[in-house]
């Protein structure tokens, strides 16, 4: 697929200026490149690129996943989606979840990174601890949280211990979504902290030192210098958080299964239910493409809003 389409005619003496493909590339090198690329491109072409195109077509059909009858229905799946209250519920759930995860990821990652950014005994131990949930599987993390959030679990025992009423966290719409949000942030905290720490250590020390000599307090330096300088990384962390939220599946599947009554049914769960539980592959594919469009749209808006990810002071 990459090989040259060089004309077989020999080089003509009359046209020395327009150099052919054959001139610009050595045939040997091109063949070597093809050999190096083929294994990866065959895999990615078959299981990533072809499925994207095929999924786009699928979203225009009413295929049930079996047989060859892919009945073309035009945009019917998309119009159905806009009239489907389950889709709107899922969109609302995903939006609230994405917002919560973004804000809390930035806040928690930034605070931990600021605390870690200077020599300190046991720094690598802290870093290791904060990274533990990152390397733990979503299934394992969600099972432990389910256990802790059980009506008679440790969280409720702590609440009764200080005289508060117990909460059935995972069986009420908004508390279940809050639990899912906190679990997601908890799981990615170490990742976000390392990202911010890398950015912090790349900042010029001279700037904040000068401000310190001018009498700026720690809070003033952090608020008006460090945080604005970190803006490109904040953009990156927010985009990562949005991708996490829009792609979320494993944590939801194990923690709540999408319940109670759709209270945590993010777009990924909705797609899964329609495509793989109800066998509506066409409609599932349409939901997947809507997710992709939303993700790209939100990233673009965020990109414009933060001024192309440039920092103010740099």
């Amino acid at each position: 697929m990459v090989s040259t389409t060089a004309p077989t005619v020999g080089r003509s003496v009359q046209e020395p200026v327009r150099r052919s493909v054959r001139d610009r590339y050595s045939r040997r090198e091109v063949l070597t490149a093809v050999g190096f690329l083929i294994p990866a491109l065959v895999i990615l072409g078959t299981f990533v690129i072809y499925p994207i195109a095929s999924g786009g077509f699928l979203s225009l059909t009413s295929w049930n996943g079996f047989g060859t009858a892919q009945k073309f229905v035009g945009l019917a799946n998309y119009t159905r989606m806009f009239a489907d209250h389950e889709f709107w519920n899922s969109l609302l759930v995903t939006a609230v979840y994405a917002l919560g995860v973004s804000v809390l990821s930035v806040a928690s990652g930034l605070v931990i990174a600021l605390l870690l950014d200077a020599p300190l005994r046991g720094l690598s131990i802290y870093r290791g601890i904060y990274f533990l949930p990152v390397v733990t599987s979503s299934v394992a993390a969600a099972i432990v949280w389910r256990y802790m959030l059980d009506p008679s679990g440790v969280v409720n025992r702590l609440l009764t211990g200080v005289g508060l009423p117990t909460v059935d966290w995972l069986n009420q719409r908004w508390t279940a979504l809050a639990a899912l949000t906190l679990l997601t942030v908890w799981k990615n905290l170490g990742f976000n902290a390392i990202l911010y720490l890398t950015a912090l250590q790349a900042l010029p020390v001279s700037l904040t030192e000068a401000a310190q000599l001018d009498g700026a307090s720690l809070w003033q330096r952090t608020r008006w210098m460090t945080i604005p300088l970190l803006r490109p990384m904040t953009f990156f962390v927010v985009v990562q958080a949005l991708i996490t939220a829009f792609q979320s599946f494993d944590l939801v599947y194990v923690l709540t299964g999408g319940g109670p009554t759709g209270g945590t049914e993010v777009l990924g769960m909705l797609m899964y239910r329609y495509a793989f539980k109800l066998g509506e592959f066409g409609y599932g594919a349409a939901i997947a493409f809507a997710t992709l469009a939303l993700m790209l749209g939100v990233t673009l808006v965020q990109w414009k809003a933060t001024g192309s990810g440039e920092s103010d002071l740099a």
Binding site: V2, F36, P51, G55, L58, F281, G284, I287, A288
Partner: peptide
């Protein structure tokens, strides 16, 4: 290595990184 369409192929691969797995998973599964 130098070969034709190197940058377009690389950009195509980069673009797929933005695509959530839900988009590819139904066709890949079938």
């Amino acid at each position: 290595l130098r070969f034709p369409a190197k940058n377009p192929i690389f950009l195509l691969l980069l673009a797929t990184m933005m695509v959530p797995q839900f988009v590819t998973i139904i066709p890949a599964f079938s």
